[in-house]
């Protein structure tokens, strides 16, 4: 695929960052329920723990545990602004590949639905390296990515499908029913609807673990939940 040649930073600027910046508030209104595994990971942290939410989006995980401190970061200024409303935490605008944090400093990190937006294998490993590097020895990072294997979802992708896809996001125009999302070709879109496409790399079974290892992390737990692969990683001891 010739198109692969062009993937990288500029590609993501156009097919990921610009899109999130435009759909920020609509996206945020559909993202409010924390996923159970992530909620548990955060709730089990001892009071006083300090960590990162890398690619925090609207900051829905910032509200889970008020006795820890999170520095959330997002590439989208509009999403960071929404996330910043969750006290007592802090939010900055930053890129996952150039995080403004001291390495080997944090008790924990989460990065939910972020790494799959990087458009080359090298950049995905680099992103995970960036997450793992932020942790102190024994610190834990929870990483979630979208799975290729989601036969039961309405998207219906399976192992045979291509892993690099453009996923439509429909923003309803005039209709009142914000928060309802449907496929672009679902047949009942209105003329005032606006469709945005975001780039995703859909992870195959085992691929996230491979990437964690390539990023000098070790996987201490991993699994599949509702169309996503997840892994809990620690920095590899040297």
């Amino acid at each position: 695929m010739a198109e692969v040649e062009y993937r990288g930073e500029n590609y993501e600027e156009q097919h990921v960052h610009t899109v999130y910046e435009q759909i920020a508030s609509h996206f945020s209104s559909t993202r409010y329920k924390p996923w159970p595994i992530i909620e548990r990971f955060l709730k089990e942290l001892p009071a006083g723990s300090v960590g990162l939410d890398i690619g925090c989006g609207n900051g829905k995980y910032l509200a889970v545990n008020p006795s820890i401190f999170l520095v959330g970061s997002d590439r989208s200024h509009n999403l960071a602004e929404i996330a910043a409303q969750h006290q007592p935490h802090s939010v900055v605008v930053a890129d996952i590949l150039d995080l403004p944090h001291q390495p080997h400093c944090f008790d924990f990190a989460i990065s939910i639905a972020v790494v799959h937006h990087l458009s080359t294998p090298e950049r995905r490993v680099q992103a995970i390296r960036s997450i793992v590097e932020s942790l102190k020895p024994g610190g834990k990072a929870l990483v979630y990515v979208w799975a290729l294997e989601q036969e039961s979802s309405r998207r219906g992708w399976s192992e045979q499908d291509t892993q690099d896809v453009m996923v439509p996001w429909v923003m309803r125009g005039s209709k009142k029913d914000h928060g309802d999302r449907h496929e672009a070709n679902g047949g009942h879109s209105h003329s005032s609807d606006k469709t945005f496409h975001r780039y995703y790399h859909l992870y195959r079974k085992g691929e996230l673990e491979q990437d964690v290892h390539a990023a000098d992390g070790c996987v201490i737990d991993a699994g599949y939940e509702k169309d996503n692969w997840w892994a809990i990683a620690e920095p590899t001891q040297r």
């Binding site: 590439r75 960071a80 602004e81 900055v92 605008v93 890129d95 150039d98 403004p100």
Partner: peptide
Amino acid sequence: EGIANFLL
């Protein structure tokens, strides 16, 4: 507005 921007 309280948000630092670290994009390089």
